[in-house]
Amino acid sequence: MSYPIKLSPHFKTKSGKDITIGFGTGTRWKRPLLKSGKNYSEELVDQILLAIDSGFNHIDTAEVYETQTSVGEALKRTKVPREDLWITTKYNGGFKTFKAHSKSGKDSIDKALKELGVDYIDLFLIHSPFFTTELSHGHTLEDIWRDIIEAKKEGKIREIGISNAAISHLERLFAASPSKEFYPVVNQIEFHPFLQNQSKDIVKYSQDHNILVEAFSPLSPITKAETNNLESNLKNLAEKYNKTEAQILLRYTLQKGILPITTSANENRLKQSLDLYNFELSKEEVDEIDKLGRENPFRLFFHEEFKE
């Protein structure tokens, strides 16, 4: 029996294929330029190709990760047509003491197109709203958003959104948009049972406004060292459904209407990450994961920015 998940909004590749959960090329893959003089990581290229061969068609990268060139190299080598793949990348506006890599949103987009070796990007996000004009070469959040809108009008970007946005940030983007056609359609946030709202009520607000929530770090409960009640619950569910604990967490995320972004260098784990549609957690099981997660609050990123 198949247990499909309907996400809203529901995105497809340019050729019309449903997008899979995302394969992330984030901080764990960040590498300095290799001594060989290559501007990409051969290791990461191999892992992206393995992910694509395992069935992923959704690759997530970002300017700040310095992995766009590695993704671009993988795109050159894969036999999968570009229009069958979904590529997400992000503008870096700077953070704390680190300045923006690019002088403007337009420069960031053009840089991404060049490094990825593509003529369009499926989804372009502002990586976080926590930058100042001093860090971003004089640009506000609204300035960058207008650059992204122009790129969408020009066909350089198919869909637009933001990452790590609270309700106030989404409202600013709504106000800066010339029409609903240019509202953000994705908000990528840290999400897992230990952090069910990165900021106050953000999941419900995003979904109520037709914004797909994407989850980074969805497997935090099994990568976090401390033993907790959720751990034994996940083990029991994994045994019941003949799945791994990671599959239980990814399925839980999907049943919340949230699209997870994950990563692995292991072929079996990659294939397992996509094998999520032949079982379904009951409402009671989802509620219990929620309850046990709330008992163990934990945040990986943006501790100061989301203090309440």
Rank of each mutant, 00 (worst) to 15 (best):
M1W: 06
P4M: 12
P4C: 14
P4S: 12
L7R: 08
P9G: 10
I19F: 01
I19D: 07
G26H: 05
R28W: 12
K30M: 05
P32G: 09
L34T: 15
K35D: 12
E42V: 02
D46C: 07
D46A: 15
L49I: 06
L50N: 03
N57L: 12
N57Y: 06
I59Y: 04
A62W: 07
T67C: 09
T69S: 14
S70I: 13
A74K: 04
L75K: 09
T78K: 09
K79M: 06
K79C: 09
R82E: 02
R82W: 01
R82T: 06
D84P: 07
L85A: 13
I87T: 04
T88R: 02
T89H: 01
G94L: 06
A100G: 07
G105P: 00
D107T: 07
D107K: 03
A112C: 09
A112R: 02
A112S: 15
L113W: 01
G117Q: 06
D119L: 03
Y120E: 08
Y120K: 00
S128E: 05
P129L: 14
F130Y: 15
F131D: 13
S136N: 14
H137K: 08
T140N: 08
T140D: 06
D143K: 10
D143H: 05
I144V: 15
I144R: 02
R146V: 14
D147K: 10
I148R: 08
A151K: 10
I157P: 01
G161E: 12
S163C: 15
A166K: 02
H169R: 05
E171K: 11
F174Y: 15
S177L: 04
P178M: 09
S179A: 03
Y183N: 07
P184F: 08
N187M: 00
I189L: 08
I189N: 13
P193K: 00
Q196H: 01
N197I: 01
S199P: 00
D201G: 00
D201Q: 04
Q207V: 07
D208I: 04
D208V: 10
H209E: 06
L212H: 01
V213M: 02
A215D: 03
F216N: 11
A225P: 02
N228Y: 04
N228E: 10
N229A: 11
L234E: 13
L234M: 08
K235I: 07
N236K: 09
A238N: 08
E239P: 00
N242I: 03
Y252I: 08
T253R: 12
Q255R: 05
G257C: 09
G257N: 08
L259N: 12
P260G: 11
P260M: 11
I261M: 15
L270S: 10
K271M: 14
K271Q: 11
Q272P: 01
L276R: 01
L281G: 11
S282E: 06
K283F: 02
E284G: 04
V286H: 01
D287N: 15
E288Q: 12
E295N: 15
N296V: 03
N296W: 02
F298L: 15
R299D: 07
R299F: 03
L300H: 11
F301P: 00
F301K: 14
F301C: 05
E308L: 13
